[in-house]
Structure formats: structure tokens, C-alpha cells
Nucleic acid binder design. Structure first.
Lengths: 388, 388
DNA sequence: ACACATTTGTACTCCGTGCGAACAAAAGAA
DNA sequence: TTCTTTTGTTCGCACGGAGTACAAATGTGT
């Protein structure tokens, strides 16, 4: 007779410490390579003997390799350890019209990178991407690939890895993962652009992975990735972070989501293009890239439109700052190219009436590489090193 | 579980699994008592032998005791294990005018409870509370106390345990912790009301502690506690969750925080009292409790005021739902006593134009006990049982 | 040239921990 | 009485980290 259901809770076995320490050491090597065993011991606090055993395992399994020999003023020379550069990951940065495909090593270094124009139509688009991946795989037969990481404009259920909400993509992303896994034989992991960038910041941003940060991805819409307590905040079925559909202007224009005055309606790239269109009274909308060029060259209407966008962006970011009080808020998107012009406007509106210390606000160093490098975090993040 | 994520726990030693399993077993006993060793084994998945050793430790250290002997259709009778009812915690629920002091056991059962009217003035207030605690300690000499847990209207820095932001309290809470520790000799932990209620929900709500939930505390102001990824989200220096100061009405009335149209200005108890005052054009404001009574008795103006408050409450909750997509949103505060009347209004505004499945919205089962029971979570929560 | 200091990386012992099997204990059923 | 079932304990085993000792490697001082 069972009086209690089998809710197996998270237990630890005598192998648990090794799993934890192994991950710790691998991460240290990944971020601080090249590094010697002795330095690993000093940084981690684990004994040199323990480090040696863990490193032996990691080498045997091909995650890392011994590299050059260092030089010290006295004593035996240290052997540097490095990420095995023969292990690689396919990184996909999917946009509505084009997709960037890259090969990166496990430390996030981009080996090659190419842009594929994606044709209209579901099957064609997928085929174009898969073919490009196949060519890359064939061209890098010396590498062994651990998986495919995809950053895309939409929300994905983390567990099912199904795309739930992707208004800007009109091809069948729901089955993207399974189709691509069948076609390439590689494990596929995908996540929202903003989440991907947040992971990149934490994995490669040199932070200690402890502090909270929010990534705001400004594109056709606005998406946010929330990193808190050492993890991405995903919410029920992966829908957390939709700050883009928070109401900023109660009487604002309608949004595709069914509401009106959503943040992304008044602060996205599309919004800025709309503002400009109203000012010049032109029926033909220009691209956001063109608008940025105009604003950079000092065009009065373009500056006016971008200023309005920046103000609204700041208002929404203020909301995030108040609600979540992260240490840092990072902005990703094309607007970062004109940050020197409009960043201060965004920041001023974020800080307006702030009653506590506002978070650091900064543009991402390089959104493109951030999105690509997130593939490593996505692929290695969950259960990459498998149960052995 | 993330394999390569950055872990808060630095390194693991060979003692780590025991620490993890010990906490697990203690929590199972705490929530499912009375329970036998064999059942603990089935529920946790750990071997009976392992359970026996851990239980031996817990008994030796006085956390639990062996209780009655069970009865089964066949076989040896199980010995039930229970929380040691001689271990207790002082729970403080501080409000501006009055403070509730309670003694609870480690399972959150309230042993005694009393309300202390707090006089005006810094020293007097603290003395009144400390004296009441001293009397309680003296009256329960058979119990051994593990600490004091305080739930209060304000934000506290978790690490320093200093009160940062408590507009409604006008006595020197900054040194509350250290003074009280000196006066009682007990360890003091404190946290914001909303955080405390969120902890209570997770510790005593029967959930598995995995799902995300947000607690909205509606009182003179509005505070929120965010539980996500198995932890409270605290943000930089503990200021996360100030959704109360998110701007809901851009042209709304000014707020004490310096901004205007903040959620708490339009949806708190104080707001409802204001709405009622406008309607009846009375210069003398009534208390919120009186307003609730009027609304319950069907007073048209009171119902109108409460309806406006409920609508605005729903608007803000919608924002939380969109931004964080928690599984559940729990409302705490006096308004829950009239939830049957106005809950549907709140819910309707939360669901307005929802483009995804909205979270469950419900009033807390009993906010008073929730706040008191949170003391257990606060005192035992961090590393109380950990390092010996 | 040679002893010594210094540093790295490995070998080995010790202890803590969970696992699994065996076993004792307890109680009802045949 | 004997068998069955269930609980709780004991014991041997393997794994893993800590700590110490030691070999290896390299520069410095005499």
C-alpha cells in the first residue's frame, strides 16, 4: 500500500560532487583558457590532486586537450589546458528573411560564419538551411559536432522545444527541431533571441554568473530575457519575458497581440519607422536601417522619430528596472549602432523619478556574435555531457 | 538541471550529498509528518539504509523525534517520525500600528499568537515588542527557540538584513535586527511581506516548490514577491518585486516615490478609500476596513470605489502575468475578505486581451497565518541546518 | 658543477557518503 | 508452528574529495 505518490525529489548520490566539480572545472577552462591544473586548483579551491583526476576524465572524454607548456620564474613548468578545438557546434541565428549559420568551438570562438538568404515558403526555407548546414558539416570533417543551437524571434517551450509564439516567422517552426534533427543527425536546442543573448552575456561576458541581468532585444518587436538567481527565468511553459506586450500607453495604437499601447508598438523598430512615416507623410515606408542612416546624417525628421522611439524604450526599461531591479540591463538590436546619439535619451527616461539606484544600462558589445555564441550555451547547457 | 550553468554553490565536497539529502529528508518530514523511514525511502528514492543514517543524525540533533507506531495489514509496524515539537520559532508580523507575535513549531503550526499594540516612538515601539517576546520566551521555557522571523512592510537587503525602503514604518528599523538579536539572544531574519507570503506558499502550500508564483500584497501600498526557479527573486540588493511602483496610469496622481500613476497609487487600499471619499465628498476619510464593511452591505458608493480598485488591481496583475508568466498569482491583503464580490473583476481585467493562457489567480487562503508561518521559512531557509 | 628552493603534477591513504544485499525484527496468515 | 510481508539495521563495496608525500622540472646561489 502506497500512501505517498512517487514524486521523486532531487536527491544526491556519492557521484554528485564529481558532477558538480567537473562542471565547475570545465567552465573555468572554457572561460579562462589556457590555464594550468595548479591555477585551476587556486581558482576553484579544490585540491590539485582532485583537479588532476577531473582533468584526466575531461581529456579522456575529449572535452579538453593539453596545450603548450608555460614558463615561470622558478619551478616546474605548468601544462596549459585548453578546450578541444576539434569539438564544435553549429550556431543558427534565424531572422525572417535571412539566417546566419556559424561553426563555433566549445569556448564560443566563431570558426566560420555565413549568411543564407531564406526563400519564402515553409519547405524551401527549411531545405535551404539544412543544405547549408550539410555543406558546413562536409567542409569540416575534421571537427566533431555536439549539436545545433538556434536563436530565433519567438518563444519556445523549453522542455518540449516547440515554438509557441513566433509572429514574425511564417514557416513551420513548430516541427523545426525534429525535422532538423532527422536531417542532420545532431541534437537541436533552440531559444528566444533575448534569452539567447542573456545566456551569451553570462557565459561569455566575463561575469561571475551570479548577478541578475535583463536583455532587451529591440527589433520588429521587443523581447526580453531575464537572468536571475543563476538561471534564465522562463515562467510557465517558457513565456516569461514578454515585457514587449506590457501596456505602456493605455490609449496607444493596437497591437497584433490583441491589446493596445503595448511597449513594442511604441518602441520597436517598426514604431520608429511609423513615426518617421507620419512626419514625412510618405505612403512608402522606409526600412529601419535606412532610418538609422538618415538619423546618423542628421536628418531632422529621422532624429525626431528615433528620439520618440528612444523615449518610449526608456519608459519600458524603467518599468523593468522598477519591477525586477537587475544589476544590468543590456540592449540588443540595430538601435545599438546609434547608441551614442540616442542612448542618453533612453537612459534619462529609465532614470526618470527613480527612487532607488537604477541598474546599469548599456548596449550589447556585439549582438550578432552574442546570438551565435549563445548556441554553445544552449547545446551544452542542459545535459550535454550526458550520463556516463 | 543545467549541467554547465554557473552554480551558486562553488565547489562540492564528499559531504555535499549528505547536506543535500539531509535537507530533502527534513523537508519531507516537515511537510508530510507523520511519516515512516520506509515511506521516506519510497518518496525520495533514497535507499532505506541511507534514510536510517540521516534520520539518526536528525534525531540526535533534535530536529525530529520518533512518534507513534503505525499499523499495516502485514509486516513489521513502521515507526512514525515527526518534527520535534519542542523546537520553536518566534514569528513577527509587523504592521505600522500593531504587531502580531506568535510561537510556531518547525512545521509552521502556530502554538500561541497575540497582538501587541505598538506605541508611537522609536524606542517605545521596539521595547514593547521585545518585552512581549521576552514574556513569550519565559512562558515557554520547555521550548527551545531557533530564531525570530519577521515579516514587515518594506524591503530588506537580504545579505545585510538591513531595511532599505519602508515608507510606512516610522521607527528605526534599520537597526531592528541587531537590537533585537542583542535583546533576545536569538538569530533574527526578516523580509518583505510579499516575499514572506511567497515563501509561505512554497513551504506550506503543498506545492512541489518547483513552479513559479507571484504574491501580490495589497495593503496601504502594493508589494510583490516573485518565486521563480525554486528561489525568491530578489534583484540587486533585494529591491526586486517593486511592481507597486510601476506606472499604470501615465497621467495618474503623484506617488510618494516621486513618480506618478504608480500601480499602488491607483489600486491600493488607500486608493479605494480615496475613491470613496471623492464619491461621498466627505472630508473625513474612513478606514479601509469600514469601506469593506460598507461594500459588503451593498453600499453603492463603496461598491463603486471597490470596483475601481479591483479594475486597477487587475490591470497591474495583467502586467505581471504578461511579463513573468507565472503559474499562479496569489493575492494577499484585506481585499481577499471580499474576493467573492470583486475577485471576478480583478480576474477579468487580468485576462483582458490575453494572448496566452493567463495564470491562475486566487486569494491567499489565510494571509495572517501565511505571514506568521513565513517566519519558519525565513529562519530555517538559508543555511540554518546546513553547516555544523 | 652541485646543492637547494620552488613549483607542478601524481600517487596513496583516509574518511565521508550512498548503494545494494543480507539480516534481524515484528506482525499477520495459513 | 511455519510462511509471508514489511520495517529498519548492518555490512561490504565503490566513489570522491582532502591532505600528505613524492617525483619531476627548473631556476638560483655558492
Amino acid at each position: 500500500m502506497q500512501r505517498f505518490s512517487f514524486n521523486r525529489t532531487q536527491t544526491a548520490s556519492n557521484k554528485t560532487p564529481r558532477r558538480i566539480n567537473r562542471n565547475l572545472i570545465f567552465n573555468l577552462i572554457r572561460t579562462k583558457q589556457p590555464i594550468s591544473r595548479a591555477d585551476l586548483s587556486r581558482v576553484s579551491g579544490l585540491q590539485r590532486s582532485t583537479i588532476s583526476l577531473i582533468v584526466e576524465d575531461l581529456i579522456e572524454e575529449g572535452w579538453i586537450v593539453e596545450g603548450a607548456v608555460g614558463h615561470l620564474p622558478r619551478g616546474r613548468r605548468p601544462t596549459f589546458l585548453e578546450i578541444n578545438s576539434k569539438r564544435a557546434i553549429i550556431a543558427l541565428d534565424i531572422h525572417p528573411a535571412q539566417t546566419t549559420i556559424a561553426v563555433t568551438d566549445l569556448a564560443g570562438k566563431i570558426v566560420t560564419q555565413q549568411v543564407v538568404m531564406v526563400p519564402d515558403g515553409a519547405t524551401k526555407a527549411l531545405n535551404a538551411i539544412v543544405n547549408a548546414i550539410r555543406k558546413l558539416l562536409a567542409a569540416h570533417e575534421d571537427l566533431s559536432f555536439d549539436g545545433i543551437g538556434i536563436s530565433l524571434p519567438g518563444r519556445a517551450d523549453v522542455h518540449l522545444q516547440k515554438l509557441i509564439f513566433a509572429p514574425n516567422l511564417n514557416w513551420p517552426v513548430l516541427s523545426l527541431k525534429s525535422k532538423m534533427e532527422r536531417a542532420t543527425g545532431l541534437r537541436v536546442k533552440m531559444d528566444n533571441v533575448a534569452n539567447a543573448c542573456a545566456l551569451s552575456e553570462v557565459w561569455f561576458g566575463g561575469s561571475d554568473g551570479l548577478h541578475d541581468l535583463v536583455v532587451v532585444n529591440v527589433a520588429e518587436g521587443i523581447g526580453t530575457g531575464i537572468f536571475a538567481n543563476g538561471q534564465l527565468l522562463r515562467g510557465e511553459s517558457g513565456l516569461a519575458g514578454e515585457f514587449g506586450h506590457v501596456q505602456i500607453a493605455p490609449d496607444g495604437p493596437p497591437c497584433a497581440c490583441g491589446s493596445q499601447g503595448c511597449w513594442e508598438v511604441v518602441a520597436s523598430n517598426r514604431a520608429a519607422v511609423g513615426y518617421y512615416g507620419e512626419l514625412v507623410k510618405s505612403a512608402v515606408p522606409i526600412t529601419f536601417e535606412a532610418l538609422l542612416k538618415l538619423a546618423q546624417s542628421g536628418d531632422a525628421f529621422a532624429v525626431q522619430a528615433m528620439t520618440k522611439m528612444a523615449e518610449n524604450l526608456g519608459r519600458g526599461i524603467r518599468l523593468i528596472a522598477v519591477a525586477l531591479a537587475p544589476k544590468e540591463i543590456v540592449v540588443v538590436g540595430d538601435i545599438t549602432t546609434v547608441w551614442h546619439q540616442f542612448g542618453s535619451i533612453v537612459e534619462a527616461h529609465m532614470k526618470k523619478n527613480a527612487f532607488t539606484k537604477p541598474p546599469l544600462l548599456r548596449p550589447a558589445y556585439d549582438g550578432n556574435t552574442a546570438r551565435l555564441r549563445s548556441a554553445v550555451a544552449l547545446v551544452l547547457g542542459d545535459d550535454a555531457m550526458g550520463e556516463k
